[in-house]
Amino acid sequence: MSATGVLIWAEIADGAATASSYELLGLGRRLADDMGGPLSAVVLGPESAAAIEQLISRGADSVYVFDDPDQSEFHTDAALLVLEAAADKVEPALFLLPHSSYGTELAPRLAFRNESAPAMGCVDGRVEDGKLLLTRPCYGGRARAVVSFRSAPAIATLRPKSQEPLAAEPGRQGETISLDINIPPETIRVNVRERRQNVEQGVRLDEAEIVISGGRGLGGPDGFKILEELADALGGAVGASRPACDLGWYPQAHQVGISGKTVAPDLYIAVGISGAGQHMAGCAGAKVLVAINKDPDASIFSYAHIGIASEYQEILPEILELIRR
């Protein structure tokens, strides 16, 4: 009998499962139902207990928990053994991980140990005639590839903001299974000397409902000042294109695109951004996309809902004044 279930890795941050975990459950539930199998989640670390109830209420049938007090610090080398053990127990058709810093490391390592290859950065999935198909952006976000897998489990990462999470269903029942895994000390070969979080000022970029992004067309770092003022006035966040970050005009943490953050705000205003596929892959989920670019032939206008072909220096101060009025 071939595998039918889906297993997801629910990453924990600040004492709860991440928002991405719920998107993984959303897609996982749909695919598992289509294949007629169960949906399981695996969580690890000292804060995992707090996440179990939420994971079950949002679609998981069973949750595998690894919480060893000797392994309280997160190491990818150890996490890899836990995920491998969970996959061995569940034997899923699909093992879905978040397309996060750690997810993008663990998925390929897990797959290669299985003599398989992962589908990285997927945005959707479906089951057709019993065959699992996943869709992922390729060629720098300019195209989409639909892939199937030759062996089970299929291993894939899911880009954030690509799926609807399921609404929590209070009182939903599920099973909790504790994983007892020995992590030999020699498997942890990488020493984490220090870990530090970016200090966020104002609204977080990936959670903002309004994002105002600047690109090479701003002409220099000073162009971001008016973007910041506008973002402040609107309660939004500032983003930047990869060229603007590579040129050192704005911090890398604000980069939107395939190698930066994915955002899906209600409003995205792209200022002086040409519309390279790798950037659009990070903001195409915006409900309303406004482009301001002096070049009326810029590729960004083929994505934008509303366009203004004009110099940003002239129009942004006017917009700011209207908003503040």
Partner: peptide
């Protein structure tokens, strides 16, 4: 390991 079924 992967089969590309379609690209668009």
């Amino acid at each position: 390991r992967l089969t590309v079924e379609d690209i668009f």
